[in-house]
């Protein structure tokens, strides 16, 4: 089991992490950050295994992964 913490102010909502996560744990959130981007959130935490694929793809170093 694992989980990720998203730095929502760094996130630009590019969705690269969403497409990298083959367990479907991530979704864009409904909110906007201060820059006007819709940050990603761990919508289905039970699915996350802490594999870090999302963080490896994140261009904005917005994801920290725990396992």
């Amino acid at each position: 089991m694992g989980y990720v913490v998203i730095n929502t102010e760094l996130c630009k909502g590019c969705e690269l992490c969403i497409s990298a996560c083959n367990r479907g744990a991530l979704s864009l959130s409904e909110t906007q950050n201060r820059k006007g981007y819709q940050p990603v959130s761990l919508a289905r935490p039970e699915k996350c295994n802490g594999c870090s694929l999302c963080a490896i793809m994140c261009p904005d170093v917005a994801i920290t992964v725990y396992r």
Partner: peptide
């Protein structure tokens, strides 16, 4: 639980200015 992926010390705290999803980051 332990942290398995965290921001590197090799980057500063400065948010990157690149477009969303740009490979430069």
């Amino acid at each position: 639980e332990k942290c398995v992926f965290k921001p590197t010390e090799g980057l500063t705290e400065k948010p990157l200015h690149y477009c969303p999803g740009c490979s430069h980051g």
